[in-house]
Design a protein around this nucleic acid. Sequence first.
DNA 1: TTGTATGCGTTATCAG
DNA 2: CTGATAACGCATACAA
Lengths: 329, 329
Amino acid sequence: MATIREVARKAGVAAITVSRVINRTGYVSEETRQRVEEAIAELDYVPNVLARGLRSSRTHTLGLLVTDITNGFWTTVARGAEDAAVGSGYSVFLCNTDESATKQEQYLRALLSHRVEGAIIAPASSDRTALAALERARLPFVIVDRRVPGVNADLVLGDSLGGARELVGHLLARGHRRIAHLGGPVGVSTADDRERGYREALTAAGIEVDPSLVRRGDYKLESGCRLMRELLQCSPLPTAVFAANNVLAVGALAALRERGLRVPEDVALVCFDDLPQASLIDPFLTVAAQPAYELGATAVRLLLSRLADPHRPPEMVVLPVQLLIRRSS
Amino acid sequence: MATIREVARKAGVAAITVSRVINRTGYVSEETRQRVEEAIAELDYVPNVLARGLRSSRTHTLGLLVTDITNGFWTTVARGAEDAAVGSGYSVFLCNTDESATKQEQYLRALLSHRVEGAIIAPASSDRTALAALERARLPFVIVDRRVPGVNADLVLGDSLGGARELVGHLLARGHRRIAHLGGPVGVSTADDRERGYREALTAAGIEVDPSLVRRGDYKLESGCRLMRELLQCSPLPTAVFAANNVLAVGALAALRERGLRVPEDVALVCFDDLPQASLIDPFLTVAAQPAYELGATAVRLLLSRLADPHRPPEMVVLPVQLLIRRSS
DNA sequence: TTGTATGCGTTATCAG
DNA sequence: CTGATAACGCATACAA
């Protein structure tokens, strides 16, 4: 691969002049610029970002850690983040932690090692020490989707509490009284908030929460399937189920089918997060859709604003969720 | 951030000794190693991959270009690739070209600029000049999912032709005679092969292909919707539809619903590529599932083997698809 | 408007 | 087993 010096020699200038042409810094005469650009084209010159980053400590790169790359919610967050970043001249390293604290740690090291200028993190664990490495390294970061207590960083969330209340309120309005909850990981703020919203909605309606109808697992398919199977042991059966996210809901559907139960005829089902493809397919679950694209884009905006002003106080942005009512409930 | 020299000073050794400890190259006494590792831990030292890559031109990084990050097929390919890469000490830059030749070009430049050691590419266009930049830069690469005529590179494909024949064969066995085809982009090998398989299966069954039942678009939701609407103008209506991929199928479903038609009662629908979540939901499309994870993993294996032996002749690997028969057809 | 000297953090090379 | 020196490709600081 050609280097900046080879380009310079071909164009009959010094390397720094080529640098100035590429980066549009400083003055270069029109004629010189022409010659340099020709030389660049002829040699297929591609600047070496390693050398550039090493010298300038500006890598124009951000990191994004998501917890489940196969979930449409997260790929949409990623697209929102990427579009916002590219629009500002940054690229994004997309990393999938799979809800694993170990993978999260490895990727955070990798991001530090690549000298990204900032990171957007959906924390796999609520343990704030997991982010301590970033703080020690003074790497600016934004937390997305989940609160982590005691971490002093910008934060972008969907309104889990409000969304859960609305979903359960929707079921109540349809006449359901025996409503179960399939919850996510204990300690993950979205899961905790959604359970709280569920409880508050029931209590406000004068319904006592039946502890046997509240199950917590993790945000995985198997969990949804297993917890739903457990719920189906209850008697009487719940008439409706509120799943804490889309993956849990799909797992629950599998368990329901297994038992020959139809949605919504036999059991109503609602969940957090949209099912992009399935939304076009029966049974059309009612969902509380988070603005995933905006979550990603907002996180990048906050991060870039922090890079510009490292001393501004941390912000918390809570984006509203949208209730998409479909025929299932 | 601490540098290797600071670690060296703290441990009372030369920088190169720290390097040897980190990279497990050369001999270091057990006692020295201990001291160095302590210093690394105390200083939170994270090696700078920019400097490392600059000096050694080994970045331990691969690039992966996919055409649609929101499609579960491609996220699964990415996971397969990533697992295989990480297992061999590589990390992967995941890039989403969105089927756009322009984005593909930008990302290829970015990969060259980051000095990745190799790339895995799902070509957004069948234009081989799009890959010329890689050949000029002598960057080893593997093509995945789609053939590009005239490119001399390793290739990993699913069996589009065979899978299409099987899917259409399945419909024929169910008694369908008027079968439509929703095809992908003209010139994209998967789309071309699938149309060919469709035609061959019909011809072999003694059925003449009705040109008005064959529509080609791109692999986007809108395309599936629009083409299906067009098909619904035909008279008599087709009794079955073969969509060239999962996204087209979902678009087709939307158009069918719009017209109040049920799947499979009114129109049978089959497609290429699985619908991971929707598979648990009605209407349970019969699909030809490609081994997406293995496609990704195989591509990485081929790429790494090429890095080890740049002169071995290119290989072509065709992985079989699996017919998942569900109740829709 | 252009150029020279220098160093970013690491590892290759050679020396001991 | 350990170290000194130089160089990777580029951009900063300063000079002309």
